[in-house]
């Protein structure tokens, strides 16, 4: 019965990546755990992945704080206005 649960490293790491967003299904998680029993490399990949997720989340937070203030410059808007007026005339 375990034959259906056997997956490759490519598939295992795909599930692992999906799991970083909490979106792996129960069956996928079982397959992943079974794969870990025999694969040290994918276990390490997962360990790194968990740390990276933490890092990406921190980065997401700091990026969003910066982006909130991003907009077009006054000059860019004026240039756009001129182009736009030409077109609508």
């Amino acid at each position: 019965m375990f034959k259906n649960f056997k997956i490759t490293c490519d598939e295992a790491t795909t599930i692992c990546d999906k799991n970083q967003y909490g979106e792996a299904t129960f069956v996928e998680k079982v397959k992943l755990q079974l794969h870990f029993l025999s694969c040290k490399i994918c276990r390490m990949y997962t360990k790194h992945n968990t740390l990276l997720t933490k890092i990406y989340k921190k980065k997401a937070k700091s990026d969003r704080a910066q982006k909130a203030t991003l907009c077009m410059s006054h000059d860019e808007k004026e240039r756009l206005r001129k182009e736009f007026e030409k077109l609508s005339a």
Partner: peptide
């Protein structure tokens, strides 16, 4: 070998996994 790691792409263990670095601007 379909679906197995290509040798030179296999994850290596990390030396400075130190948590303190995960918020640094340089890392970002």
């Amino acid at each position: 070998n379909e679906g197995s790691w290509i040798e030179e792409r296999v994850p290596q263990s990390w030396e400075n996994e130190a948590e303190k670095k995960i918020e640094s601007k340089e890392l970002h």
